[in-house]
């Protein structure tokens, strides 16, 4: 039987919660015995997705961000969801160096980081409704526990 686990949390879209979110995911994933590199990759991807929800999804408003993790065998699936303003053009947003807020000195590399550090990224977004980012990564060294 393959190992399965699940967790979900919600938190306010405050920038202080960026580090909180990545530490939560790192702790949850640690049961799979990831390498230091895998853990750093996952933390960075989570940080990017949560930052997007905070800066772009909700702008300056404090609303809830939802973070969900699922472990299926050696694979971790992380979902970050907001009910903010949504992304106008997902393909454009995923382009390296594209940023809708150049005045904030953002690098426009958020989606590129997520795509590079995780195996697969699924972005669902609807204008005025919100954005859901699902990130999937198979851990190479993970033990497949009962």
């Amino acid at each position: 039987m393959s190992f399965e686990n699940y967790m979900k949390i919600e938190f306010l879209s405050k920038s202080q919660n960026e580090s909180f979110a990545r530490v939560v995911v790192a702790s949850f994933v640690s049961q799979l015995d990831p390498t230091i590199e895998e853990l750093a990759d996952i933390k960075t991807a989570v940080s990017e997705a949560v930052t997007n929800s905070i800066i772009h999804g909700y702008d300056k408003q404090n609303e809830k961000v939802y973070l969900e993790c699922r472990i299926i065998g050696n694979t971790i699936e992380i979902t970050v969801e907001d009910f903010g303003k949504g992304i106008d053009d997902v393909d454009l947003a995923r382009q390296p160096l594209y940023t809708s807020k150049p005045e904030l000195e953002r690098s426009g590399m958020g989606f590129t980081v997520m795509e590079t550090f995780m195996d697969r990224i699924i972005v669902e977004s609807e204008k005025g409704k919100g954005t859901r980012i699902k990130m999937i990564k198979k851990l190479k060294t993970a033990k497949n526990k009962e």
Binding site: R22, S47, E48, T51, E105, S107, G110, V113
Partner: peptide
């Protein structure tokens, strides 16, 4: 101990 793409913006700026 940690850096995400925000660090790229800081360094380029």
């Amino acid at each position: 101990r940690f850096m995400d793409s925000s660090g790229i913006g800081v360094v380029i700026g």
